[in-house]
Design a protein around this nucleic acid. Sequence first.
RNA 1: GCUGGAAUCGUCUAGUGGCAAUGACAAGAGACUGUAAAUCUCUCGGCUUCGGCCUUCGUAGGUUCGAGUCCUACUUCCAGCA
Length: 373
Amino acid sequence: MLKFDILKRDGLARVGVMHTPHGDVKTPAFVGASTRATVKALTFEQMRELSSQAVLANTYHLFLKPGSALIREGGGLAEFMSWHGPTFTDSGGFQIFSLPDVKLSEEGATFKSHIDGQKFLMTPELSMQTQWEIGADIHMAFDQLAKSDSRFDMEKAMLRTHRWLTRCVDEHERLEDEYLAKGLPEQYLFAVVQGGTFLDLRKESAEFEAVLPVDGYGIGGVFTADGMSEMLKTVCPILPEERPRHLLGMGQEPIDLFVGAEFGCDTFDCVGPTRMARNGALYTLNGRVNIKNAKFEHDFTPVDDDCDCKCCKNYTRAYLHHLFKVDEITGKVLASIHNEHFVVSVVNKIRNSLLDGTFQDYKKEFLARYYKG
RNA sequence: GCUGGAAUCGUCUAGUGGCAAUGACAAGAGACUGUAAAUCUCUCGGCUUCGGCCUUCGUAGGUUCGAGUCCUACUUCCAGCA
């Protein structure tokens, strides 16, 4: 069982520490997206430098390339990519269900590789086997995404996700015995709560999953902060308190992090910060800025005066503007350092504010300034 | 000097007489949330009551209902010959 110590509570919010074989994660924490075993444009030295504590890779991508066997051969995910810290893997469900030709059956999902068109059948069992072989500390259960936002599709997907979850749990326990017998470290399973925007479905999903022997929960199918607090207020009180909760895919908008943490989420992952960085959109305390805009050509100030990342400490907006205009990769690197540092820091500050009881003040001040436009 | 060839939007470029004119780049702006994303979208002569109107293809004329496209002259550039 994953050890998770809760140090402080404030309503649904908690401050805690997750203990994984690759180290501790102080929560709430922002987990970097390392989909293909890299946080795009960044080295793991840079990730450590900006105080990232954990990263999340994707089973779908790593299953196709380089294959889980190779990662096992390389010592497991954290060692293979020389991160050596705590890691998560997403199950691949989200990716597979966003491919064009997916055929769904009770057995699993048949899909075609986006790389070479090769056909595969991904099942809950195969996802578990692949994730164990990849060797991240925390795995997500293989879930089905709804075809649409309709209640009908949402309920169907949720019920299938629950049936698959019991298979994930069985396979996970079988693999756990097998791996631990070989003297390999523990790996943990998170169930994924579904139900979309329907609170009664969310409740049903949380109740079903709460009694299962899983180590934590991913909260899936959330796409905007709208309605998120109501959803979390429904879900989180049902989930066992001592198990961590990961808000899947949220964190591009800073408000997501505040709402998520306030209503009981412990970790977050999101591709937004690094993707936006590569496309020239940078976070500042005064809101988002597009560094490619002409107005930055002669701006010799840092991206954000109040930021202490390597980018802001050493480079100017005018320089980044230039790098983006001539499409130099260093621009994307510096922007990624900044954005990733920004969201990691916001969550770290949320943690500190919860510890010293100033969360509401911090939230109010931050959001007023960031979203003042 | 002679003989050919060429001049189109910031740049390069398409353009059978019906054309405000092709494509690329550049430029300007926007989007991006469990990453098929260093990607994608929009604008890119001016004005507009969104129906159009006006000004454009080196310059000046001409032919024609109509010319970036044909003719004449000039200007500039390129190539070859002197």
